[in-house]
Each structure stands twice: as structure tokens, then as C-alpha cells.
Design a protein around this nucleic acid. Structure first.
Length: 562
RNA sequence: GCUCCCGUAGCUCAGUGGAUAGAGCAACAGCCUUCUAAGCUGUGGGCCGCAGGUUCGAAUCCUGCCGGGGGCGCCA
């Protein structure tokens, strides 16, 4: 990372006037190339403490920066910006490093990432997409920066839906439908129960009792539960395989069933929890939480989400001793996690707990729900994406064999859906439209994939192995490309720090724009001297490596040809 | 009522304290007898919801208001 490379310089300069701690933060890329490559805004931040004018302070700091061998020139601009222009050779070197591995800032650290987490007995629909995509990208970012990652799919396999489902199963099962489409029938039963309970409220009590019976170990209920699990996991795994998502653990809520009574006991014994209206609840002192209690045991003796989360965090700490645990769920659970984190801290959990929440995915007509039946199945979306991609592949690459076109269409389609999701700031809501989700032009996955494939193609045609140590800059398009490549680690680390993969996606998009400019401006294989040819092939090789790395970190498939 | 999030070009969105607010789509005008046109070049398009405040500097931070969405004990 360029700021890291320049760190000793900024720190020593900062130390001449004040505390060096904030020195690196103040070094940022310029927004306008006319202002140089990086600007150091340190003078503004220290001027007040030193009771001096920023511009005068900048003048004093300027010669100290100019000493660095990587710095070509430094100028003071405007009210006190220090604009830094780097030597071409320094940019080349930084790009070469960027094309290696990302900074291993997570070495020695363990992080548990809890994502996807669908509910059993329902099909995965597009509402499950964001947690899966975001979680998987965060997984990739952590692994690529040296963290040990435990990806844990905390599936909802122990909640009240089972009571409902067991009741519905006994009353309304359609065995023929179940035989041909098991999960479809389970989903139908679930929806049907929801409709019936409106007319017959007694069903709700029956379902609650059914849930308690299951949770207390009733053998007949257990048998049905295992059946529902098997059917559901088959469906989930098929989707994960298509998405290229793999979990290290799939420890659903049921894995913690036996620990739940003890969680309640611990909290009661410590005086954290108390009885209220027949249930057991925790209340909070923090101003932000004092108005709402957290329920950990229901009046009927059943446990709920919070109880399971507490048991789960204790298990994770005991088993993996992670530095942090990241929960990837939608925005609706913000209050829940604030409460749950507070309880966990009270119980002595030291691990950093992070709720990486994301905005809602809604349909143009409003919210989606399985019960209302207005969902779009995830497989349906992926199928349609692949179908649309196939049309384009047939049109663009008719010469390729059928099998290869299938493979390209599948990669393009699935990447397009994923990119449409993760290239947006996670914390904004998304209104789902087919055309947005399945776009293949412009700032989309195929654009990035295409850039990469073109690099591969050109390197292939060159007929010589690329050499990355013969690069020298001879045109602005080359320099801009190299500078973007050199900033790849900064973008990745920034995406990691903010838990926003879109930061990285946007940077990859910028790189591809600069590759296109490069194609446009400079020839590689023809009308070039051997030195130019070697240098430019080296640059393309660096671009190829960076793109490949970046796409993989985000969980996107990479193609050499399309 | 309390609380969280959002409001940026016709549309979908980046931009979360730095200099002249950027992309894609859509519209319009061009570019395939040279390395992949899933591409490239150019044009038009903005009281950054409104009003105050903090700051050398605000789309970004603070306060209030308006509009939209979410959450607030037996769901997860």
C-alpha cells in the first residue's frame, strides 16, 4: 500500500511538529490528477494546536517529504495541501507489490462470520441473497488478508415454525405433492397454516405446544424434524454449490438446544435476568437500550432467538477463541443485536462482536414474504440470469463449443447477480427489479470479467512469457493504470475495515476503465519496440493478476475467455 | 410515543471532513480491413430534501423540520 510505503516519511515529518499518530490517516489519494498522486492534509490538522497557519506549516513540512526516494516532487497548494507526485519507478514497484498478495493484516487472528442463515422448511428466495453475498465477500476479504475464518451457517432449524409445520403436516399434508416436491409442499403447509390460524386462533396454541414438545425431545416430533432438515439442506446445498459458497460449519440453532436452560439459569443467577409476566427477560441500564427488554424464555417455557444467540456466542468463544465475530443480517435486527451484545459483555465475552447489517430487499410493490406468497425463488433468479447470459454468449462467441458457452453463461449470469448486489453499499435498501439484477452492460460483472479475459487473450497471443520486471512508463494511460493497480490493496483494506465490499468492487471497476483507456491509447503487440512490448505485456500481466485476485476475493468467478 | 436507516442527474446508485460532486442506464452524435465492440470517444443533464450551526474547508459532522422505510415481550 502506498500510504504504508510512505509511512516512515510522514511520521518523521509529523514528529518534527507534533504527534505522528495521525500522520498516515492524512495521506490520501488526490481526486484530481492535476494535484499529484497523493495529498497530505496533515498541516490542516495540526495547525490549530500549533497556533499557526496551515499554509505556513505546510511550507515547513514540504522539504521533509521531498527527501523520500519515491517522491518526485512536493508542492504546497491552496490553503495548505501538500501535493505529492511519485516517481514512475515507485509507482511501478507499488503496482508489482499489489499484484502479489494483499497485506496480511489479519495474520494470527481468528474471525467467525455468521451469514446466510436461512430458515429450514422454506425455499431460499431472493431475500436470502444479500446475507449470503455480503457474508461471502467479507469471508473472502478476511481470508485474503491473512485472517483465519470460520464461516458458520447458523440456520434457523429450531424455531416456532416447526410447531406450525408439525400441526400442518398432520392435518393437511398432500403426500403426492410431497413426493415430487418436498420443500415445495413444506412451504405450502407453512403458508396454509398462516391462513388457517387467522380463522382458528386455537391453532396457534397448538403450534406453540408443538414447538415446546419438539424442544423437549419428543421422539415423534424429532423424527419429523429430521425429515424437514434433510429436505431443506438438500435444497440449500444445491443453491450454495451454484453460488460457489462453502461454509466451514453449519451449526444451526438446534445445535445449542441443550445449552439453553443453562443460559437462562446463568442470567438469572447473576441477577441479569428476571421474571416478568410469566416470561424471563433482561433489561438494560444503557440509555439507548433502557426502554426495551430482551426476552430469553417465553411464558410457555420455550426459548427464543436471543437465548440461542447467547448459547452460540459462548460456544464460539470456547471453541475458536476468535478476535471477532461478525453477524451478517438485515437492518431489522439492529436492536436485537445491540441487546444481545450487551448481554454477552455482561457475561464476560471479550470478543469483538460486530453486526454487519444490510438494507432491505423489497419488490416494487412492497415487502416480500413467504406467507404472502409474493417471493421470487433464488434458483429462479439464477436460472433467468444464466438464460439471459446464454443469449449474449451465443451472439458474441458463436465459435465456441456448446459446453464452453454453457460454462461462460453460468459464470456470467451468477456473477452478474452477485455483483449487482455487492457493488451497492450494503446499508442501503434495494428495490428488486429483474432488469437491474440481470443487467449485463455497463458497470456489471461481465464488464470486469471481460477486461480480465482480454488481458488473458492478449498475453496468450503475445507468444512470450510476461516479465514484470521490465516495466517502464512511457504514456499517461500506462501510469494511470499502474497507479490504480498499486491502490488495489488500499481499496481491499478499506473494504475490510468498513465491511463494505462495494468499496473494492468500485475500485476494480476503476481499474477496468483504465485498462480500456490503455487498450485505446497504446499498442502492445504491433508498432512497438521490443522494450515497449515487454513493458506493456508486464503491465497487462499485473492487471490480470490484480483483477483475478480482486474478483476472487469478492467471490466472483474468473474466466480466461468469454 | 421512542428509536434506527434513507433522501445526490429523468431512472438506479457511488461518494461517510478536502480542491471543479462521479458512474451505469436512458437520450443524442461518432468509432469494428490492427492486439475481444460484453467495448471506446464525445454531448446534454445537479438549490446533494429544506433551514440553521460547527469548521480553514460540509453531500459527508451537529440541531430542527419535511418525506419514505424499518424496529420497539412471547417471530427470527
Amino acid at each position: 500500500m502506498i500510504p504504508e510505503l510512505l509511512r516512515p516519511l510522514t511520521e518523521s515529518a509529523a514528529a518534527t511538529v507534533t504527534d505522528p499518530a495521525t500522520a498516515v490517516d492524512a495521506l490520501v489519494p488526490t481526486t484530481n490528477p492535476a494535484h499529484g498522486d497523493y495529498q497530505w492534509n496533515f498541516a490542516f490538522r495540526s495547525a490549530k494546536a500549533l497556533r499557526t497557519a496551515p499554509r505556513a506549516l505546510a511550507e515547513r513540512l514540504r522539504p521533509l517529504l521531498a527527501n523520500h526516494p519515491g517522491v518526485r516532487e512536493v508542492e504546497v497548494a491552496g490553503p495548505g495541501f501538500l501535493n505529492i507526485r511519485l516517481h514512475d519507478s515507485f509507482v511501478v514497484e507499488a503496482a508489482r507489490r499489489a499484484a502479489g498478495s494483499l497485506p496480511q493484516i489479519g495474520a494470527g487472528q481468528t474471525v467467525v462470520i455468521d451469514y446466510s442463515s436461512p430458515n429450514v422448511a422454506k425455499r431460499m428466495h431472493i431475500g436470502h441473497m444479500r446475507s449470503t453475498h455480503l457474508g461471502h465477500a467479507l469471508d473472502g476479504l478476511h481470508r485474503a488478508t491473512g485472517h483465519r475464518v470460520i464461516a458458520d451457517n447458523h440456520i434457523g432449524d429450531w424455531g416456532t415454525q416447526f410447531g406450525k409445520l408439525i400441526v400442518a403436516w398432520h392435518r393437511w399434508l398432500d403426500p403426492e405433492h410431497y413426493a415430487e416436491d418436498p420443500i415445495g409442499e413444506l412451504e405450502r403447509l407453512y403458508v396454509h397454516f398462516g391462513n388457517q390460524v387467522a380463522e382458528n386462533p386455537a391453532l396457534a396454541d397448538e403450534a406453540r405446544a408443538g414447538t415446546v414438545k419438539l424442544q423437549q425431545g419428543d421422539e415423534a416430533s424429532r423424527r419429523l424434524w429430521r425429515e424437514f432438515m434433510e429436505v431443506s439442506l438438500r435444497e440449500f446445498n444445491a443453491v450454495y454449490e451454484r453460488l460457489g459458497v462453502r461454509f466451514d460449519e453449519t451449526l444451526g440453532e438446534s445445535a445449542y438446544a441443550e445449552a439453553l436452560p443453562d443460559v437462562v439459569k446463568q442470567l438469572v443467577d447473576r441477577g441479569v435476568a428476571r421474571s416478568s409476566e410469566g416470561a424471563v427477560v433482561v433489561s438494560f441500564d444503557e440509555p439507548a437500550l433502557k426502554d426495551h427488554v430482551l426476552m430469553i424464555q417465553k411464558r410457555d417455557g420455550g426459548f427464543n432467538y436471543a437465548t440461542t444467540d447467547i448459547a452460540t456466542v459462548q460456544y464460539r468463544v470456547a471453541r475458536w477463541n476468535p478476535q471477532r465475530i461478525i453477524y451478517v443480517t438485515d437492518t431489522r435486527q439492529q436492536l436485537h443485536f445491540k441487546q444481545f451484545f450487551s448481554v454477552a459483555r455482561t457475561l464476560g465475552v471479550q470478543t469483538e462482536l460486530v453486526h454487519a447489517w444490510f438494507g432491505m430487499l423489497t419488490l416494487p410493490e412492497g415487502a416480500m414474504s413467504t406467507r404472502k406468497g409474493n417471493t421470487i425463488r433464488l434458483v429462479e433468479l439464477l436460472d433467468e440470469a444464466t438464460r439471459r447470459a446464454r443469449v449474449v454468449v451465443d451472439q458474441k462467441s458463436p465459435e465456441l463449443p456448446e459446453e464452453q458457452r454453457d460454462a461462460i453463461a453460468s459464470a456470467v449470469g451468477i456473477n452478474a447477480v452477485r455483483y449487482a448486489d455487492i457493488s451497492q453499499n450494503p446499508q442501503t435498501d434495494i428495490v428488486f427489479t429483474w432488469d437491474k439484477m440481470l443487467a449485463l452492460d455497463g458497470n456489471t460483472a461481465p464488464f470486469l470479467m471481460y477486461s480480465h479475459a482480454r488481458c488473458c487473450s492478449l498475453l496468450h497471443r503475445a507468444g512470450q512469457a510476461p516479465e514484470i520486471d521490465r516495466i517502464s512508463v512511457s504514456a499517461p494511460a500506462e501510469r494511470e493504470l499502474l497507479l490504480s493497480l498499486a491502490r488495489y490493496p488500499e481499496a481491499a483494506v478499506d473494504a475490510l475495515r468498513t465491511l463494505r465490499p462495494n468499496v473494492l468492487a468500485e475500485h476494480l471497476y476503476e481499474i477496468c476503465g483504465r485498462i480500456n483507456r490503455f487498450w485505446h491509447d497504446v499498442p502492445v503487440l504491433f508498432d512497438t519496440t521490443p522494450e515497449e512490448r515487454a513493458s506493456r505485456l508486464g503491465m497487462i500481466e499485473l492487471a490480470r493478476r490484480v483483477l483475478r485476485s480482486g474478483l476472487e476475493v469478492l467471490g466472483l468467478r474468473v474466466l480466461d475467455r468469454m
